[in-house]
Design a protein around this nucleic acid. Sequence first.
DNA 1: ATCTCGATTGGCT
DNA 2: GCCAATCGAGATG
Length: 194
Amino acid sequence: MHQPLPCYFYDRPTTLVAQELLGKFLIRHFADGLFVGKIVETEAYLGTNDAAAHSAVGRTKRTQILFGEPGRAYVYQLRNYYLLNAVTEGIDTPTCVLFRALEPMQGIDLICKPDNLRATKETHLLNGPGKLCRALEINLSHYGMDLSCADSPFYIANGPQDHFEIEATTRIGISKAVEPLLRFTIKGNPYLSR
DNA sequence: ATCTCGATTGGCT
DNA sequence: GCCAATCGAGATG
């Protein structure tokens, strides 16, 4: 029923993919059931021409997946947290989209683990790139995972045909390439970060 | 081996 | 709004 988006969905300009991922579903398989979250906030990282992108300095062990096939998961660690991205565009184009916030749609009881109890409000459970990975148990073991495969622990699928307005703002938490409007949100959605 | 820094978060002023 | 926690990647020696 939740059909994964094909890998060619990601093989397009990253700013477009970042906007089109809004409203899509992230499906997470847990042993106890299925969690579904709607993507409500993303950021585009444009690779070689983007000083804020990890791949701006070139190919490293950490960033190698960005140079490969679109539709894979780029996961990396920042302090105590993991952050999830989807690789976009073609081979040797090291671009990606960061998943920054989800609106829970189904299976919210599956993610109310001890680490998340402090987030008493439902709107504060998945409203940040580190928080959503913690809640969904996403970590470095998912580095390079195929986001277009229904057998993966999690993948991206179409959501409902809702109408919403996309708002573009500056990206959060970076010190280089601050100006471009590469953060995209579903305008007015209550589950956004910040 | 050592140093610097960060696509964050939570707590405090 | 400010700041510390905390730790691996990447750069440098």
